[in-house]
């Protein structure tokens, strides 16, 4: 029983990271109908931005909550800027061409970031500074909950609530929803669609950076290809929840993390990565719209 609870707990922490990344996929898809394959690599850039900020501030010498927040803010700002630049330079010029071109460009941007990362940061993994030493907060028998797990979970939930508030309660959020409904109609009523799309990328990329920092804290090894697998899994989580649906991305992320933890615990880690793809295939066959998505037939 304790084993099961521990697996559930580990899976929840992992799942909250997937959920944060899945949100970025889902928001961009919602607004542009584009799978932004470079999203996982933005996680990587965020992790590196946090790593360098932490090193520059010597944040691991005297770990404080303030240090953690500064590192987080710096990483989110760096990734937000990158997200803006990617949209502005790579995707916007292709706004009115076939969506396939956009998809291929996304793959290109992803490869570009991965290889640029290897040139700039080096292919050798770096150790993420210990800005939050691990302390067990709760120990009952064998079950242990650590401050890192609580931070990962808490930060993710907090950011998801903030996102929900932005999308549902603010003017910007209303504009985002309008643009995702129809670009033309939104621009007819005076919504600056390009600005709103840029804003969506900025928001999604900032969340990705936050996920990158949380990965760095829990699994302190950062390398230029770290975003590939985690990006794919978060993408599957987004599809599982119903791509385009914010609530779906969150639920999908948690389901993904927990089922991965269970499969490794009770099955074999051979199937850890296979699981993500098996879920993707099953969802596409039986419920193409995902758990929370609305099925929209393609208009030809």
């Amino acid at each position: 029983m304790e084993g099961f609870l521990q697996l559930l707990l580990n899976g929840t922490a992992l799942g909250s990271i997937y959920a944060l990344i899945a949100l970025g996929y889902t928001m961009v898809y919602g607004i542009l109908r584009l799978i932004n394959f470079a999203h996982g690599d933005i996680v990587m850039v965020g992790a590196y931005a946090g790593l360098f900020t932490a090193l520059a501030l010597h944040a691991s010498d005297h770990p404080t909550a303030g240090g953690f927040l500064v590192v987080m803010a710096a990483a989110m700002a760096a990734s937000a800027l990158l997200g803006y630049l990617i949209e502005r330079l790579a995707y916007r010029p292709l706004r009115n061409v076939s969506r396939l071109n956009l998809l291929i460009t996304a793959v290109g941007v992803s490869l570009f970031l991965e290889n640029l990362g290897q040139v700039v940061f080096g292919a050798t993994p770096r150790v993420f500074p210990d800005i939050m030493p691990n302390v067990a907060l709760f120990q009952s028998g064998e079950l242990s909950i650590t401050n890192q797990q609580v931070t990962v979970f808490g930060t993710s939930i907090f950011l998801m609530v903030v996102l929900e508030w932005i999308v549902q309660k603010t003017k910007l959020g209303r504009a985002m929803r309008a643009v995702s409904h129809s670009h033309e109609t939104a621009s007819l009523v005076g919504i600056p669609t390009d600005t709103i799309i840029s804003f969506t990328f900025v928001l999604g990329s900032a969340l990705a950076a936050a996920a990158g920092i949380l990965v760095g804290i829990s699994y302190p090894r950062v390398d230029p290809l770290m975003g590939v697998m985690i990006g794919i899994k978060a993408f599957v989580a987004a599809v599982l929840g119903g791509i385009g649906s914010i609530r779906g991305a969150v639920v999908g992320g948690f389901l993904m993390g927990i089922s991965e933890s269970m499969v490794v615990g009770y099955g074999s880690s051979t199937y850890r990565d296979a699981l993500a793809f098996a879920i993707l295939i099953l969802i596409l066959i039986f419920k193409p719209a995902g758990l929370f998505g609305k099925y929209q037939p393609e208009k030809v």
Partner: peptide, 20 residues
């Protein structure tokens, strides 16, 4: 007798089973 794949970052599931 548990296993992982090089490059994994999360080993807690395997270690939880081993702990038991």
């Amino acid at each position: 007798d548990q296993s992982y794949v090089a490059g994994d970052v999360d080993f807690k599931s395997q270690l939880t089973i081993i702990r038991g």
